[in-house]
Design a binder for these strands. Structure first.
Lengths: 238, 238
DNA sequence: TCAATCAGAATATGATCAAATTATTTTTAG
DNA sequence: CTAAAAATAATTTGATCATATTCTGATTGA
């Protein structure tokens, strides 16, 4: 989250398509990741000026990125002119549980009908990296790989609107996830991914949906519990 | 959709709080309504330059408004440099049916537990205006009041995230709604609102949810059918 | 304690630069 | 000689930045 901007993150020499993506896209993706994986802590104020210094970008693209994120719920307009990363309340988490429990099993079921060998191989690869992260106790890597797994699964389902909405939900509980996992480490985290992958191999919608539902509910209930326990750090936000 | 900008839509002399809302907000709301109620037809290109002329606003606030709308799915990046109002495919409508059928009954159920007398009175008022619009055959007024009814109901439920997501869904099928209703008039439109209102009076969550579920499904199935019938105008978009 | 002034931050405009599409011209083939 | 295709020129649109203006919050003095 620093340094000069002009990189597209592909790592490749950027031949083939010299059309680099616009700055506002890059800033958007950076901010999005910063929110998702806890580079920006909940309650931390996000100022335009600060981002100008941090990214080296101009003012206009930054404003556009902030607008997008606020309209997706990743950032919040607080009071007069302050934008910050919101910390979800227990009530909000409860809403997010409902959304995830509804959307993601549905997407998993559809994915089971559409998944190709290549898709399944990709999921397998991600899940291995995820296991790695858990054994290493690397919280951020866990968050990234877990996110990647679910997004890939949603992508396979070939239901772009549902996947889009589901992705937006992750944006809202991401900050809380980071805080809680930072405290609890990578112990006791749910992993029903292997069941889900096998269900995809068998084209078994029912089982895939149930595996994901379990994964979602277990993870989110844990999150909710941790939040309710530690009402302490709420003062830091307000 | 023309004329000078500085109006906040309140119609009031704007005493009390001389802090007019920022231009980008106004532009956003205008564009949002234009998409929702068919002022902007599906397939119609939306250019920054065009909006500058139409609204008289500067470039920056317009860019911000467009970013917000695209990230909500109300506008779509098509090809290189064109932004337009997307016409949902039948597949997309099917996804939207799932979302509405899931979210709105849930919100109605919650609303039944929370509604005050004032809330119910407001819903009654909106529904009367809706009936008026139907008997007059005023398509745009029907769309506006129907939208207002469902949004008010969602608002009563006191579940801001769910309401937000549900509102986003409306943005995606709004354009199609306008086209179809423009062809069919206000005949045969579903209206289970009175059942829902009564259920709110009785604090009967089950009945409220089922009434809204019916309302949603009937309306959306009709929309889907009309779209499938008239695959004709798809050529106009692409 | 309240008001006035000042500093800092955000909003909004216009100018400038780059990219793309469209129109025009030129060349080539039938 | 005409028509079609390719190349180039011109207009249109989008992206970014620098700058001016407005608004908010704080601090200081009465």
């Amino acid at each position: 989250m620093q340094g000069t901007l002009p990189q597209d993150g592909s790592g490749q020499p950027n031949t083939e398509k010299p059309t680099r993506l616009p700055t506002h896209q890059v800033v958007y993706q950076r901010l999005r990741e910063a929110v998702l994986f806890g580079e920006l802590a909940p309650g931390e104020p996000v100022t335009i000026q600060g981002l100008i210094e941090r990214t080296g970008a101009g003012m206009t693209p930054i404003r556009e990125a902030i607008r997008r994120l606020t309209s997706e719920g990743a950032l919040e307009f607080r009071g007069n002119r302050r934008v910050l990363v919101p910390m979800p309340t227990p009530d909000a988490i409860e809403e997010l549980i409902f959304l995830r429990e509804t959307l993601e099993p549905q997407l998993a079921a559809r994915a089971a009908e559409k998944a190709t060998k290549a898709d399944i191989a990709a999921l397998d690869r991600i899940d291995s990296a995820l296991d790695d992260a858990i054994t290493r106790g690397d919280v951020v890597a866990y968050l990234r790989q877990n996110h990647a797994f679910h997004m890939k699964l949603n992508d396979i389902a070939d239901a772009p609107i549902l996947a889009d909405v589901a992705g937006g939900v992750w944006l809202r509980f991401g900050p809380a996830m980071r805080v809680v996992c930072g405290r609890m480490g990578t112990q006791n985290l749910p992993d029903n991914h292997k069941t889900a992958i096998q269900a995809l191999r068998d084209a078994d919608s029912k089982t895939a949906a149930e595996a994901i539902r379990l994964d979602v509910v277990q993870g989110m209930e844990q999150l909710l519990q941790a939040l309710k326990d530690a009402e302490g750090f709420r003062e830091a936000i307000d």
